[in-house]
Design a protein around this nucleic acid. Sequence first.
DNA 1: GGTCAGGTCCTAT
DNA 2: ATAGGACCTGAC
Length: 335
Amino acid sequence: MYESLLTDFDIRRIMDSGQVFRIRPLTAADGRDSFLAAAGNRAVLIRQRPEPEGRMRVWFSCTEEEFEDFWKDYFDLDRDYGSIRRSVDPKDSFLSAAVRFGYGIRILRQDLWETIVSFLISQNNNITRIRRSIEALCARYGEPILPDGLAGLSDASRRSDASRLFTASGRSDASGRSDASGRSDTSGCSDVSGLFAFPTPEAIAEGGETGLEGLGLGYRDKYIFRMALRCAGPEGRSWLERLRESSREEAMELLLQEFGIGKKVADCICLFALHHVDAFPVDTHMKQILAACYPEGFPFGRYEGYAGILQQYLFYYKLRCPQLIPSQAGASARK
DNA sequence: GGTCAGGTCCTAT
DNA sequence: ATAGGACCTGAC
């Protein structure tokens, strides 16, 4: 278990920001802020509690070493999001509101292969369905895993350790009580089992062309299968490695050659996996925002090099408060 | 029942 | 080069 006091961090908003599909709430019943974050072939339990001055007390189930080696980087905790927020033009009331509303969002550094597949699935799709498909894909072809910090424990102590993590709060109820509904205090943690790694390219490739049926992928299944063939084996791995070492321009060029990857998906891969934070994916939501709030175009010049981070605040704001977008009567954005 | 989802591909001008 | 239509599927 690793405890930390963070600024500009809110795992719930990160979960809901549309950049990641494998973070889920764990204990909805009692209102505790507990989450399971899966990333590639590992996962971590996270619990958070607000503290004064916008800070967040955060508990990670992993060891300090695992946190330093992996999760710190994954959550982009070395970047100063405060300075990004403060750089927003105060006269831009919409962006200012979006950045306030989305306080705690960060751009993750997600696994490249997982991000490619996830955003192939995302096209012309909705977030509920995207999550379901990815979960089904992991269940079919992914190896079973356990969250960091729980792997070496027996089932019994694993449950109690998870239980301890999710009851270790400032509230004075930390003594494994049963709640009013009669469920034991471990009920919210039991779905730690049934957790799977994201499948390898090889696993999907070996499943054959029909191996992706029944996952709700629709016509996207052929994109994913071909991408699995592309990324499997030594040549596939070196292609992924080359992508990781590429500049923004080179990465876009490589990605756009692939079947099923267009400009928007390529931008998402650049932003959410390769961490090219100047990438600015424009989807149906962003089109509406740009049409309604930035008829003269988004001020990329002012935010040179990190506009993608602001894009994420805008996207989240639009997703959660669609009614706040100034609607131009009769002139709203269409496809 | 239509419409809509974090779009892309294919075809016809 | 650019515009228009097809496309799996299920939640609303």
